[in-house]
Simulated scan of single mutants.
Amino acid sequence: MSSSLPVNLGSVSTSGGPNLQEYVLQGTILDHSAEALLHRLRALCDNVDQGMELFKDHEMVYVLRGQSNNQVMLRARRSLDHANNPWQLRYLGQTDLSDKSRSVTVRSYLDSLTSESLSAFLNDIGFRLDHEFVAQGHMFRKGKMKIILSKLHKIQKLSDTQSIEPITASQLVELSVVAPSGTENIADDMKAFAEQLKPLVNMDKL
């Protein structure tokens, strides 16, 4: 999963390019402790005086399988709260393991806003739906960092986003930055912010 982590489509601008990377830290927190984390994030993050950003998104993960069990995975996402918003198509590359000393996950990143016919298009070119879920929660920002606290739900009937139930009794916490490859000091800034969330949640690389 997204691990990418979940986004509010209403606040996403189209981005992409072969040199963009996503820097990620993730953690989980039990439902009964989530409110305390929200209070901490309100104190630490930017523009919270204007109200928290809430989202409820439907994500569909498509896979194209090739020879030798190779596969390409794409993520199609749409807002359930804002039906007129465009769909988002996102590709997350494999984790870059070239530098074992890195304190955060680093992977290639491409995303684009599309029309509502995205699912049909992916099927037409050979992709098949692998799994889907609904993510609902809060999004915060701290400088270039995006912090998401989300509850993940499984869908009981195919693409019926009204028929959902929580997957676990916990919530996903994700801290991420999208920046050009080789951008300096991002990992240090992310780890410093993550330290301020302890002991409520321990953030780590994937």
Results as ranks from 00 to 15, higher is better:
M1A: 14
L5S: 13
N8M: 05
N8V: 07
V12P: 00
S15Q: 15
S15N: 15
G17A: 12
N19C: 12
Q21G: 09
E22F: 06
Y23A: 09
V24Y: 11
L25R: 02
L25S: 02
G27M: 05
G27Y: 06
L30E: 15
H39W: 10
R40V: 13
R40Q: 13
R42E: 04
C45R: 02
M52K: 08
H58S: 12
L64S: 01
S68H: 15
N69D: 15
V72L: 09
V72A: 05
M73F: 08
L74Y: 06
N85S: 09
W87L: 07
R90M: 15
L92D: 12
V106K: 01
S108N: 03
L110W: 08
L110V: 11
L113F: 12
T114E: 13
E116R: 10
S117D: 08
L118N: 01
S119L: 11
A120V: 14
A120P: 06
D124I: 02
D124P: 06
I125A: 03
G126C: 07
Q136W: 00
Q136M: 08
G137D: 12
R141M: 02
G143T: 02
I148A: 15
S150L: 07
K154H: 08
Q156V: 09
I164W: 02
I167H: 00
T168C: 10
A169R: 03
S170G: 11
L172D: 10
E174I: 10
E174F: 04
V177D: 07
P180H: 14
D189R: 03
A192V: 05
A192G: 01
E195F: 02
Q196T: 04
Q196H: 05
Q196A: 06
L200R: 02
V201D: 03
L206H: 11
